[in-house]
Amino acid sequence: MDNMMPTQDLVQARHDAALAQQTSFVERINGQLPKGTTVAPYAMLPWTLWHGQFGQLLMVNCEYYPAQPWNTMLLAADERSSFVLDLPVHPGAYPANLVPSAEKHLAEFQEELSAAKDYTDRSMQTGEMDVTVFGKALDDVRRNVLAMANTFAAISLGDDVYERHLAMFGKALGWPHAEALLENREAIRSR
């Protein structure tokens, strides 16, 4: 399984492509809003998480990147835009407890995935070749990361802001699964 790891260059290229796509998307949205009204992207999982100990879990294992649509909320860039869009101004920071809480959950997800990898490695050595446990664990981690991001956004900004964002931009951001995310938030909250 280790021989299937993407190179640093490939991870960087995917990151850069996601960032370019986000920039283009935000410019397109801003071009469609009333004059003088703009939005700014808000990463539901802060960028600091991606550059620390969980970068490999998020970008290599899950193949998620911080600027991808699933991790992006669009918030008002200023007070005028906030009034027009009925969305809060981008806060520019995160609640103090968000990053430590996210790190706690990501550590749990990483531990679950590591245990599944160890099982799979042992099964390969014995000739059993059981990759289903790792595949299921990876699917669970990916689903939990999505739910965690959306849950934290709703907690940090409020359910009403989260739902307003989904109504305005959810489908445009490629969130056809938004209803399922709303349902899965309870699983993260209870962890």
Rank of each mutant, 00 (worst) to 15 (best):
A107I: 02
A107C: 08
E108F: 11
E108L: 14
E108W: 13
F109K: 03
F109M: 14
Q110E: 11
Q110T: 07
Q110N: 13
E111N: 01
E111D: 08
E111R: 00
E111Q: 02
E112R: 10
E112D: 12
L113N: 01
L113D: 09
L113M: 07
S114I: 04
S114A: 12
A115M: 15
A115K: 14
A115V: 10
A116C: 07
A116H: 04
A116L: 15
K117F: 08
K117D: 04
K117L: 08
K117C: 10
K117E: 09
D118C: 08
D118A: 06
Y119H: 14
Y119P: 03
Y119G: 03
Y119D: 06
Y119F: 14
T120Y: 11
T120I: 06
D121A: 13
R122E: 08
R122C: 01
R122D: 15
S123K: 02
S123D: 00
S123I: 00
S123L: 00
M124C: 10
M124Y: 03
M124P: 00
Q125K: 03
Q125P: 00
Q125G: 01
T126G: 05
T126E: 02
G127L: 04
G127C: 01
G127Y: 02
E128D: 15
E128C: 09
E128N: 04
M129C: 11
M129P: 00
M129W: 01
M129H: 04
D130P: 10
D130N: 11
D130F: 05
D130G: 15
D130Q: 05
V131A: 05
V131Y: 14
T132P: 03
T132S: 10
T132N: 14
T132L: 11
T132G: 06
V133M: 06
V133L: 02
V133P: 04
F134Y: 15
F134E: 11
F134Q: 07
F134D: 06
G135L: 15
G135P: 09
G135H: 04
G135C: 09
K136R: 05
A137Q: 05
A137S: 14
A137W: 05
A137M: 08
L138Q: 01
L138D: 01
L138A: 02
L138T: 00
D139M: 09
D139K: 08
D140L: 10
D140M: 11
V141A: 11
R142M: 02
R142A: 07
R142S: 11
R142P: 05
R143S: 12
R143N: 06
R143L: 12
R143C: 13
R143T: 15
R143W: 05
N144C: 12
N144L: 08
N144T: 09
N144V: 07
V145D: 11
V145G: 14
V145Y: 06
V145K: 01
V145T: 14
L146S: 14
L146V: 12
L146K: 09
L146D: 14
L146M: 15
A147S: 12
A147Q: 03
